[in-house]
């Protein structure tokens, strides 16, 4: 059988391909929307738990700093998933970078909040888990 000069089996194949493509695109868009909503929710939670000074720093620079609960050292937490915790010296220069965070696929706001709480309340335990990185290997870019 032919429709508009095209074989019926070809119509079936083309229609099936069109439906599958739509399903893939919609699925992708749904996944993107889901991730975006999760990231937004994570940042809202983070901001609720930051001090006013940390919040202002985060809003202005995209990172915030805190004082380690045990050592009194300064740390900077940046919004990336790896090596995003910097130890700072008295001049505010990064001396070591650390990589640690909560298990699972969490939005970056959640990761940063867990890192903040850990460093402020159980600094040595958090650093004992962390991998250390060379601070000169990947200079951060802000602003």
């Amino acid at each position: 059988m032919r429709i508009a000069g095209v074989d019926l089996s070809l119509w079936v194949v083309l229609t099936t391909l069109a439906v599958l493509t739509c399903a893939l695109v919609l699925g992708h868009l749904s996944e993107v929307g889901y991730r975006r909503a999760a990231e937004k929710r994570g940042l809202v939670l983070l901001k609720q738990w930051l001090s006013p000074a940390q919040l202002a720093q985060y809003e202005n620079h995209g990172y915030f700093e805190l004082t380690g609960g045990e050592s009194g050292k300064r740390y900077r937490i940046r919004p990336t998933h790896q090596m995003n915790v910097d130890e700072l010296n008295e001049r505010g220069v990064r001396t070591v970078s650390y990589c640690f965070g909560p298990e699972g696929e969490l939005p970056i706001g959640d990761v940063m909040l867990a890192q903040k709480i850990a460093l402020e309340n159980d600094e040595q335990a958090a650093l004992a888990l962390a991998n250390r990185g060379n601070p000169h290997q990947s200079p951060p870019r802000f602003g």
Binding site: L45, W49, H81, Q82, M83, C99, F100, G101, P102, E103, G104, L106, D110, L113, A114, I117, A118, A125, A126, L129, A130, N131
Partner: peptide, 10 residues
């Protein structure tokens, strides 16, 4: 009360 998953090295 906030709960976050176990920490691990990255």
């Amino acid at each position: 009360t906030l709960f976050f998953p176990r920490l691990r090295g990255g």
